[in-house]
Structures are given as C-alpha cells and as structure tokens.
Computed example of a mutant assay.
Amino acid sequence: MYFVLMCKDKPDSLELRMATRPPHVEYLKDLEARGILKTAGPLLGDDEKPVGSLWIIKAADKQEAEALAAGDPYAKAGLFASVEIRAFNWTFKNPEA
C-alpha cells in the first residue's frame, strides 16, 4: 500500500533543516534502495525556501509508515511541527502499475 507523508517544519527552522540534511538524505537513499521510497522532496514557501517535506512510500500498513517517518533524522532532530500520513491510491503515472 502507498502512503503520502506531509511533514511541516516548525517556524524559523531552516538552519536546523540544513544542518540535518546530510543524514536525512542518506536515510532516504537507503529507503529508496530497499524499494520503500518512491519519491520525495521539500515543500516550498512563497519565498521558495523549504518549509517541509513530502514523501510517497510503499509500506505494509500505516504503523509501518509511521515508524519510517519517525526514523527520519529530521523527525529525530525535532524539525517538524506536524506529520500527516495518509493512504494513497497512486492512479496516474504509477511506474509500478
């Protein structure tokens, strides 16, 4: 099953995001290599600076998706004000369809 993770940064946290970015990228690369991460990228504010993250992952259930989100170095560093996880029906341009 696919899940979308929408992670919104705490206000004024760009410095923390940038400092934590290298281990975050390594974490996502590992998820991608294991076939879990399908796509990801930063959410941008009006000033085009990152204000959050969006992932699409493949997980057995919501509990697994929550565990994957909690393992992200950004989450461990306390970057996020909120994390929303929703089941996702990838209908158009699903490369696995």
Rank of each mutant, 00 (worst) to 15 (best):
M1P: 03
F3D: 06
F3R: 12
L5V: 14
C7L: 15
C7V: 03
K8Y: 13
D9V: 08
D9H: 08
K10Q: 15
K10V: 10
P11F: 05
P11T: 03
P11R: 02
P11V: 06
P11D: 03
D12I: 00
D12C: 02
D12Y: 11
S13G: 14
L14M: 14
L14G: 12
E15R: 06
L16W: 00
M18S: 14
M18Q: 15
M18I: 15
P23C: 03
P23N: 01
P23I: 01
H24A: 10
E26C: 09
Y27G: 06
Y27I: 02
Y27E: 04
Y27D: 06
D30F: 12
L31D: 02
A33C: 10
R34E: 06
G35E: 15
G35L: 10
I36D: 15
L37Y: 13
T39R: 06
A40M: 11
P42G: 08
L43F: 10
G45D: 11
G45A: 05
G45V: 06
E48F: 14
P50R: 12
V51A: 00
G52M: 07
G52H: 04
S53H: 13
S53D: 04
L54I: 09
L54E: 11
I56E: 09
I57K: 03
I57N: 00
I57S: 07
I57A: 02
K58V: 13
K58P: 12
A59I: 11
A60P: 01
D61C: 07
K62R: 09
Q63E: 13
A65G: 08
E66S: 12
E66N: 11
L68D: 08
A69P: 00
A70I: 05
A70M: 04
G71F: 00
Y74E: 04
A75T: 13
K76T: 06
K76F: 09
K76H: 06
K76N: 05
A77T: 01
F80L: 00
A81R: 12
A81W: 15
V83P: 01
E84Y: 09
I85N: 12
I85S: 03
A87G: 09
A87W: 00
N89F: 09
N89E: 03
W90S: 09
W90V: 09
T91S: 10
T91W: 07
T91V: 14
K93H: 14
P95L: 01
P95T: 06
E96D: 13
A97L: 14
A97R: 11
A97C: 06
